[in-house]
Design a protein around this nucleic acid. Structure first.
Lengths: 185, 185
DNA sequence: CAAGGTCTTCAGGAAATATTGAAAATTCGG
DNA sequence: CCGAATTTTCAATATTTCCTGAAGACCTTG
């Protein structure tokens, strides 16, 4: 393996790590996934410790978390004592798993709260209660819309399929066209 | 205003605050927005300090950040020396602004990186470089798909309109039906 | 079933992030 | 312009989040 390849891999792992918060895990956990995803073969804990400069505990915890998210598999090959980890290879599956888990953990509780608050406000009279109820209903409506879209994404086969429903104009084609709003004033 | 209304408002502000990281701001900043959004009238800094138990500096910084995101407006009414802050009232606009800014700050750099990495790998030969290029292309494809969808959301008028494109089955209706996958095994 | 090897857990330390508080800047009326 | 009222800024501090390291659990093989 050349240095170029290794450099690109390192950059990719770094970027992916910095994106961890975006999908709800720590940078280290995200780096572990990125690293595994960038390799054609699985790896054992020792290898990750070296490659990513992590403690044994960090590797173990990250892998556990990624397993919980359904983003990697672990197996123990016969004849070896070490666990071999491999990332999920299908990125769409990765997206679906992440979306599903975040939905359960974060969106569903919001809706439960909203559903508990509105009846309480309806039993009140003042203008203030009415106004707040209005606003909460607006929130509920939007969250429920997002919720339905997520449901559809999860049930509807591939992410790409989901995208095609939206991108009727054909903008989904992989293209080199410059993105808009790149460097707004 | 009754205690019930105030209690609901407080709970709402607390929840909204805990969601801050989800859309990329600190809990305090998120609470400020939630509080303003829950009120029919604007408020001055003094009032926020009391209601949200924040320092003067925190209020100023939070409001500045929210203004940057386009989520609140500030005006100085004639005859008063205090700035009056009001939240954006249209939740859809809020969503669009948040999405747009996060796209610019986070997604666009990803695509730029990917576009720089792939040519470097293509000038390499080994299996390893080829494999990594494959994976990066998969990432690029997905990010570009997401990108296109976001563009469409931003350009396509309302969030609700966007949702209707996806929810052809009518699942978008505001309903009381229990959400699926609430408490999975 | 003992021993060596590997993984997991978790208390404690380290790093990153958020918030305060007070000094400096700004704004406005006089 | 001056001075009071208000906002902004930012170094210091507090808080949260993350990672380490070592003790113990768990396997696997001889």
């Amino acid at each position: 393996m050349t240095n170029v390849t290794q450099d690109v891999r390192d950059d990719f792992v770094r970027l992916w790590g910095s994106l961890g918060t975006f999908w709800g895990v720590s940078p280290t956990t995200a780096r572990v996934f990125g690293w595994l995803f960038s390799r054609s073969e699985g790896a054992d804990a020792e290898e990750m410790m070296t490659a990513l400069d992590l403690s044994r505990g960090a590797v173990s915890m990250s892998c556990k978390e990624l397993r919980d998210w359904g983003l990697l598999t672990s197996e123990r090959p016969p004849g070896s004592r070490r666990t071999l980890y491999s990332s999920e290879r299908d990125l769409e599956k990765v997206v679906r798993h992440v979306v599903q888990i975040r939905k359960q953990r974060e969106w569903d509780p919001i809706l439960e709260n909203l559903e508990a608050w509105l009846p309480r406000l309806e039993s009140e009279s003042g203008d203030d209660a009415e106004f707040l109820a209005e606003r909460l209903k607006a929130v509920e409506q939007l969250v429920e819309l997002a919720d339905s879209m997520v449901e559809r994404l999860l049930k509807g086969g591939t992410v790409t399929n989901f995208g095609l429903k939206v991108l009727v104009g054909g903008a989904a084609r992989r293209s080199k066209k410059p993105r808009t709003s790149d460097k707004a004033s």
